[in-house]
Design a protein around this nucleic acid. Structure first.
Lengths: 152, 152
DNA sequence: TATTTAGTTTAATCGCGATTGAACTAAAAA
DNA sequence: TTTTTAGTTCAATCGCGATTAAACTAAATA
């Protein structure tokens, strides 16, 4: 593969990372920064390299990077007057954690809803109970899987 | 429990449903409509009942309901000149389906990223490979669980 | 047929997050 | 000490989705 090919492939991929992270609630620029830090050959980039490659203002870069660092998605290394950024390799289950938190809040909503129903045998009440059961089953299942992965 | 208590409890719950659905990308009004259809004692409500209880305009209700129906989240029954709406009880795994689609797109992004790396043993490349393995393990696991639930 | 009613359409507005540009700060370099 | 450089702060703007109001349509009712 030519270098130029690889570079333009990287650019496309950065946009896809951006789109993906935007779809799950990140600022567009945040997604593209994560993409750049994931895709580029050198995996530790300076502030300047980031704003030049992504063509974004110093202002946005500064704000967004501070946020990514505070959320532990990106790590920063200071060297002289410069800051270098790299992807923070989080716990593998970080993605699942978020999903499980989602399940918990759904479970809570549905439970409270059933409590407020006059007719606990209503169509929705029964349906919600089924969902709660499935969520519980899922969580048990996941706990088992985590243990299995951890002991590899 | 008093009826008035239950009604105000329902209103609070509707707002929580709204907040939850907004957090996963729905329009605020869409979330509140789903909340209302989940929470209310009568589980099939007319257009008018919806706009009166939620205090929203006919315009928003019309647009948002059309969308919810097209996405199969809400079912509509026509009776004379009126439309009645109720929660569409979807496949129990609809929530998981979406999560698995997310996993698929992450898996694809990471795979493509590794392909473009000059150094397949770089820190990020190794990390991405671990994530891919975990995703694969998760999907196998989920497939098993679905079968188990289906055969109950 | 004339009237009322249920819901749709659409132009206008509102609010808000993302982004930028430019002034500013602090620290290294000269 | 003066100058240069790296990054921060913040006011202003841009763009966009959500929402509404009001005119409009179609169908039921009188």
């Amino acid at each position: 593969m030519q270098d130029s090919e690889r570079l333009s492939g990287q650019d496309q991929l950065i946009e896809r990372f951006g789109a993906y992270f935007e779809s799950i609630g990140f600022q567009p620029i945040a997604g593209r920064i994560i993409g750049l830090l994931s895709v580029s050959d050198r995996e530790e980039l300076s502030f300047d390299e980031i704003i030049n490659r992504l063509k974004i203002s110093k202002g946005s870069a500064s704000v967004v990077l501070r946020r990514l660092v505070s959320e532990c998605r990106v790590a920063v290394v200071e060297s002289g007057r410069r800051h270098y950024y790299k992807l923070n390799q989080q716990n593998l289950f970080e993605l699942l954690d978020e999903f499980e938190r989602m399940c918990d809040s759904v479970r809570y909503l549905l439970n409270t809803t059933i409590d407020l129903k006059t007719d606990k045998e209503s169509s929705n009440a029964k349906y919600f109970n089924q969902i709660i059961n499935t969520i519980d089953r899922y969580k048990t299942n996941m706990a088992t899987m985590r243990q299995a992965v951890q002991t590899i």
